[in-house]
Structure formats: structure tokens, C-alpha cells
Simulated assay, not measured.
Amino acid sequence: MRFEQLKQFLALGSLRHFRQTAEQTNISTSALTRSIQTLEEEVGHQLVSRSTRSVVLTREGERFLKFCQNTLESYHDTRKHLDNLQLNDSQNVTIGYTFAAVEQVSLCAQFMARHPDVKVNMRLYSKDVLDTLLQNADIDLYINKNTATDGAMRAHFTHGLVIFVHNSHPLAATQSVSTITLQHCPLLGCFSQTLSLQARLEEAVKEMHKSNDIRLGSINEIINYVRQGNAIAIATPEHLERIELHDELVQITFEQAPQVSNDLIIKTGEHTADNVHVNNLVSLFTGTTLSA
């Protein structure tokens, strides 16, 4: 039993259609059929009831679907934890900052004096460039002076995802949207072919408490649904170019709540959640206790 098979069965459980699932997972329909048959042989139970029009999971299939979800979620969490361990062991921290925050960044000298074994790289860029670098995990810590518009970031939210709607949707005219608002709206999600990006999407959906009622599909399927005007969609950055081809689709601003110390905005990347060096630097800039 391979992770690819679990992902294929998870997609089949969501789409309930062999051809669409095969397209989504980039294999032929016959290969997908053989993969599901192999799973059934390995678990010793029929998982799928097939017909010419639809796919129905058996009782055992529904139970196995939950197993796939839990297993892949555990796998993503473990990979994330291992990646963070590697970051901590690397003894490198990259700080991105704007010119307005030069004075505050000088506090790094205190950290470097306490931790001479840690290499601190500092990069000076504009705010917009730093947002992109943080989303792409090219920097570990973002420091900027607070401005009136820094409470929200266009198109992407903390996980580096994109929210979009049809221009006739009520939210298209709003300046920003919060997770609380999204909890009460029908939500569509686009599959990602990149494991780390798919994990980001799943984590964001979980934070919005939409794991049980989100509808997943390919980017083309989701765009078609959104164009009907009554749904909100969430996608990974790889789909941004495809979304921007449709003038009637609007990317929504997502309300962020960055950590602010006096007149500073401090943001950390998702990839640095367990990085002790980054946490120590945040403590230094916010004036809280600095750990050893």
C-alpha cells in the first residue's frame, strides 16, 4: 500500500467519478481502476460499488476513506515537524525588513552576541517583496513599520493561499474578509499537485472548520462552479495564473492579524513555527523574555 494509492482513493471519495479522479491524479482511468482493485485486495474488502454513472463507497470504503484522511494528515504533520527540526538544526535565520524598520533590526546585535553559532542573514526589501519572500519560505522573519493597510494582505492569506469569487458575489465588493465570514459560506477547494501546498490548503480549511463540508475538485471544475456566482473558492498559488485569465473572477483581501509591537509589524512563516531561533528573535523585538 503506497501513499499514492491513498491519495487516489481520497480523491475518488471526494469526486465520486473515476475519469475525473484519474485526471486529477494524473494517471489513466485503467491505472486508477487497477490501483483501487489492488487496495481492495490488500484490505480484503470491497471498497467501491461501481456503476456506469456513479461511484458509491461501500460501508468499508467509507471507513477506509477516513483512514486515508487520517493517515495522510498524520504524514503531512510529521513531514512538517521534520522540516522544522531541520530548520532548527541549520543554525541559520534569514530576516527580511523594510527601510522603515532599520533601527529596530539593529537589535539583532544582541541576539548575535548571545548566539554566536547562529548565522543571521538580513535582507532589505520593499513590503510587497517581503510578503512574497515569506510566503515562499525564502525568509524566516518579516519586520516592517505599521501602516494603515498592513492589517490585510491582498489575495493571499497566511498560508500562502488565494481566495477568489465571481464578481457578482456579495463579498466581491467588500474590502476584506475574515475567517469567521468564511465559516458561513459555501467553500470550494482546488487540488494541488504539490504535497506541501496541499497540506497548506488542508490546514487552512481545518482552521476555518470547513473540513467536513468543503467541495474539492480540479482548478477547471472549481472555476466553473465559482462562475455560477454563489460560492467562494480557495486555491494554492500554482493556480493563480489560471485564475487571473478570467476577468470575472475577483481575488478577495483576507484580514490578517500580524503580531505588532508598538509601531512594528512582525510576521513569521508557517515553516518556522517550531524554530527556536526565530522565536527568540520575536521575543527580542517584542520586548518579552528571551530564552537561552
Rank of each mutant, 00 (worst) to 15 (best):
Q135W: 12
Q135A: 03
N220E: 13
G151R: 14
E62P: 02
S168R: 14
Q228C: 09
H169F: 09
V102R: 15
D150W: 06
V165P: 04
R63F: 12
I180F: 09
L10Q: 10
L10N: 02
S192R: 01
G61K: 03
Q198H: 03
D128C: 00
D138T: 01
A204T: 07
Q198D: 00
I266G: 10
C108F: 12
N26T: 06
Y142V: 01
I139C: 04
A109E: 03
N26C: 14
H184T: 11
M112R: 15
D247C: 00
T253E: 02
L182E: 02
F9Y: 10
H169P: 11
D128G: 03
F9M: 01
D263C: 02
G189V: 10
S14P: 02
I265N: 11
T21Y: 11
F164W: 06
Q20L: 13
P170S: 01
L245E: 04
E73S: 12
I95G: 04
L47Q: 03
A235N: 01
Q104R: 15
S28R: 14
L201I: 07
V177P: 06
A137K: 13
H81Y: 14
R63Y: 07
T289S: 14
A173V: 12
L130C: 04
R242Q: 13
N279S: 09
R63S: 09
K80Y: 15
T78H: 15
R53S: 12
K267A: 09
F254E: 00
F254M: 09
E270Y: 10
Q183D: 04
Q228E: 06
H166N: 15
M208I: 13
S126L: 10
L284Q: 04
D213A: 01
E4H: 01
R2Y: 07
V205I: 15
R34I: 09
I243V: 05
V260C: 15
D274T: 06
T52E: 08
L188C: 09
S51M: 03
C108D: 00
P258L: 01
V93K: 11
Q5C: 02
A172M: 08
G151S: 12
K145A: 15
L39Q: 08
V129G: 02
S106T: 14
I95M: 02
L107P: 08
E207R: 15
G229R: 14
S28D: 03
T52D: 10
V278M: 09
L130Y: 07
K119Y: 10
H209A: 15
K267I: 08
L107C: 08
Q86D: 03
E62Y: 05
Y125T: 00
T132Y: 13
S74P: 06
L245D: 10
T25R: 14
I265W: 15
A199W: 08
V278P: 13
T174G: 01
A292E: 05
R215G: 01
H81W: 14
S178M: 05
S211Q: 06
G44P: 13
H184P: 05
D131W: 08
L216F: 14
L65T: 00
Y125G: 00
T33N: 13
L240T: 07
Q183V: 10
T71D: 03
L85Y: 05
N224D: 07
F111C: 01
V260G: 06
H246K: 14
V278C: 11
L134C: 05
V129Q: 12
H166D: 11
K66W: 07
L32H: 05
V118Q: 04
S168I: 05
I223M: 07
T174D: 08
S35H: 07
T149P: 03
V56D: 03
Y142C: 00
C68L: 01
T289E: 04
K210V: 03
N224C: 11
A257C: 10
